[in-house]
Amino acid sequence: MEVDVVVVGGGAMGSAAAWQLSRRGRSVVLLEQFEQGHHIGASHGATRNFNMAYAEADYLDLVTEAKDLWDELAGESGRQFLDLVGLVNHGNAGQLKAVRSAHAERGIESHFMTASEAANRWQGMNFRGDVLVVPGSGRVRAAEALAALREAAEAHGARFEYSTPVRDIRVAGDHRAVVVTDSAEITARRVVVTAGAWTSKLLGNLVRLPRLVVTQEQPAHFTPLDDSLAWPSFNHNPDPDDPRDDYWYSPVYGMLTPGEGIKAGWHGVGPVTDPDARSFTPEPVQLDALVRYVREWLPGVDPASAVPISCTYTSTANEDFVLDRFGPIVVGAGFSGHGFKFTPAVGRVLADLADGGAAPARFTARR
């Protein structure tokens, strides 16, 4: 079989790349090693934060584009994917001022509230210092978006094959590679690898990537005490000058997941793991610390109601994404922890790379 592009990995980024490529008229086959809707990687779950609180120009460019593309996907599918309930950012005042300054330069709406003003508006939360509110942020309906990306890609002619592990990728020139599965060999002009926690295992020494660390993360859902309370999405950074935050493992993120509760979690500090040998069992000390955080900062939920979730992060040392091409191999990796909001824009960048274009310099593996 011969096609223009094989996409390896059917999570959010691979599905978005297939959508972007197929709508350009490319013949696309996507291969996913697990069944559709599996919970073994990083793209499952009902919601993710949609957060525009970045100070870096590259990320602001990408998230602004992503917002427009989420709306385009909504137009194609007839479904809504962004719930712009607002997002509050608090803690570390210096970081928040840098974000607000970057927003002001670009005309992105955001503003500061005092802690008392924020607590009066969002009575399920506690605040210590000034709060940066981004009204045009909120959450992404992640599970619905994943299904819609597949449907949109298939509507443009892409083919998705689940339960189809890739056993080998053989490079046969700058514009030719062969992808080997248990039942077929597929020749393609480009192979887009978006394999999440399996990226390094799959590619081996085929391309030179920055070190990708796979961790098992354990956010949890907590039951609200009052269903009438309004909940924004949130990011909370520890205050480096306040010893009361010394027990924190990292910044905390969270949002309402309708029907499941308030999701809260540490960011990228779970135990390093082999994605094929995960325990799926919460690390008890980190979970206890998360429950303590919820008890102190989220008075609108029951801290004893924690239902842990297990997922993987695949992270670079500086948390920047990897978006690059090596001959016929295009790689998208290192998204975990803050990538999902960018999904359709990342799909566009991966499609550009497959078509011979370039990614922003920040995201290239060889910078």
Rank of each mutant, 00 (worst) to 15 (best):
G204S: 14
R366M: 13
R244W: 06
P275C: 09
S43D: 10
A264I: 03
F326P: 02
L353H: 02
F342S: 03
S116R: 08
D320S: 13
S101V: 13
F342C: 10
L229P: 00
M13N: 06
G129M: 00
Q123P: 02
W70P: 00
D352Q: 13
E319G: 06
D58A: 15
V331R: 01
T312L: 15
P360V: 01
R295D: 14
M13V: 11
P299F: 03
G356C: 08
V346N: 04
L132G: 02
E105G: 07
S200M: 13
E35K: 14
S250Q: 11
N92G: 01
Q218D: 12
E161N: 08
V252C: 08
A104C: 05
P275M: 06
S183R: 15
Q216V: 12
Q95E: 15
S315F: 02
H267Q: 13
K263P: 00
G268Y: 07
Y313K: 04
E32N: 09
L350S: 08
A53H: 08
F34L: 15
T199Q: 04
G332P: 03
L149I: 02
T257I: 12
W19S: 02
P165R: 11
S250G: 12
H39P: 09
R244N: 13
N237Y: 15
A12L: 13
F280V: 09
D246I: 08
R150I: 08
R295I: 06
D4L: 07
Y313E: 07
A148L: 07
S116C: 01
A277G: 10
D130F: 07
G138H: 05
S315E: 15
E151H: 06
E217L: 06
G25P: 06
R121G: 00
D174N: 15
T114L: 07
G91A: 03
K263L: 12
R170Q: 15
S43L: 11
T273Y: 05
F50N: 00
A155F: 10
G339M: 04
H175E: 14
A46Q: 12
G10F: 01
I169Q: 03
A102C: 08
R48K: 13
G91P: 00
D4G: 02
S336R: 02
N89A: 08
V140Q: 00
T181V: 04
P328D: 03
R106L: 10
G347D: 00
E151D: 14
A184Q: 14
T273F: 08
A277E: 13
H338D: 11
P238W: 06
S228M: 06
R150F: 11
A115T: 14
A188G: 06
S250M: 05
E56A: 11
R295W: 08
A351K: 00
R362C: 02
E217N: 11
S305G: 07
G327D: 04
R244D: 13
D61A: 10
R100L: 10
L298K: 00
V99L: 02
F234S: 10
F340P: 01
G10M: 03
V307E: 14
G124M: 09
R295K: 15
N237Q: 12
A172L: 14
G9H: 03
L30Y: 05
I309C: 10
P303D: 04
E296T: 10
G10W: 01
A197T: 05
Y59M: 05
G37D: 05
E283F: 04
Y313W: 15
S305N: 12
A152N: 07
V134W: 01
A98S: 12
K201N: 15
L96G: 05
N51K: 11
